[in-house]
């Protein structure tokens, strides 16, 4: 009754080829900068570019701010919905899924209309204000992933019992949230955080249209003007994505192991 595995193997091999060939081609291309030999010249140029360092640093800081805001927004909400307002769950879930339906470019277009210099809350008037708006925008983009990850984490622990146990020991709501709930869903939060990081770090549309010096617009600018550096940047971006996903796997595995004991 053995199944023939020719078809599945073919599918996996083709899939792997489709995944790997562009990467190989990009690596190869990125090393062609010096004529007649392979070198890491493109990487040297890119890494030495002050605008690379500045834009990457900007995006990293922005990603961290996004994660902090996002976690502080989503964890209490998901916790509260599970504990006190389970009937509200479909509504909250619907809202968190909206960013998958409304294109990002439409959302940022809305921001430009709602928060422009003539509006009631002219966030785009100042640089700090725009940075904040960008972070809020990224929280919005990350909402579907962050919410799902944290909600799953909360479902895996018994929120009600933990809360009641903590209450019976005299803990207040803040203590419960930060000393009991957060530590118990740490790996879920971290998974969501790394995914958010991966989304934010190379994001283009929001940053470009809000005119902030983030990594995504920088990538685009280099791509429009240079030949080999973009390939090197693509590989760097790929490594960053890989690192985020790898860390998610690590923490996901830790969670799996912890739940088994």
């Amino acid at each position: 009754m053995k199944k023939p595995t020719f078809g599945p193997w073919l599918a996996v091999i083709l899939g792997a080829a489709y995944f790997l060939i562009p990467l190989i081609a990009t690596v190869e291309f990125s090393m062609r900068m010096k004529r007649g030999e392979y070198s890491f010249e493109a990487y040297r140029v890119v890494l030495g570019d002050p605008r690379f360092q500045e834009s990457l640093a900007y995006s990293v800081v922005l990603a961290l701010v996004t994660i902090v805001i996002g976690v502080l927004l989503v964890v209490p909400t998901a916790y509260w919905v599970q504990l006190r307002l389970p009937k509200l769950r479909p509504v909250v879930e619907f809202v968190t899924l909206l960013p998958l339906v409304i294109p990002a470019i439409v959302i940022v277009f809305g921001y430009l209309r709602m928060y422009n210099s003539q509006s009631w809350l002219p966030l785009t008037d100042s640089r700090r204000g725009t940075d904040l708006l960008l972070a809020f925008g990224y929280v919005t983009l990350a909402l579907p992933y962050l919410y799902r990850s944290i909600d799953t984490g909360l479902r895996a622990i018994d929120v009600r019992t933990l809360t009641e146990a903590a209450e019976s020991l005299g803990a207040g709501p803040m203590t419960i949230l930060f000393r009991v709930i957060f530590p118990n869903i740490r790996s879920a939060i971290l998974s969501g955080a790394f995914l958010t990081f991966a989304i934010v770090i190379g994001e283009f549309t929001f940053a470009a249209l809000l005119d902030r010096p983030a990594f995504g617009p920088y990538l685009q600018l280099v791509g429009a003007n240079r030949a080999y550096e973009p390939a090197a940047l693509a590989i760097i971006a790929f490594v960053v994505t890989w690192a985020c996903m790898g860390l998610i796997q690590v923490f996901g595995a830790a969670r799996g192991a912890a739940s088994k004991t």
């Binding site: 792997a16 995944f19 060939i21 562009p22 990467l23 081609a25 990009t26 190869e28 291309f29 990125s30 995914l195 991966a198 989304i199 190379g202 994001e203 283009f204 995504g216 990538l219 685009q220 791509g223 973009p230 390939a231 940047l233 693509a234 971006a237 790929f238 994505t241 890989w242 985020c244 996903m245 790898g246 998610i248 796997q249």
Partner: peptide
């Protein structure tokens, strides 16, 4: 699953560079 996680998030500007190089 791991590779899919990476590839599905490898979109945007870098992906365009990769396909230009390919």
């Amino acid at each position: 699953m791991t590779f899919s996680g990476v590839a599905s998030n490898f979109a945007g500007v870098p992906l365009a560079f990769a396909f230009l190089a390919t």
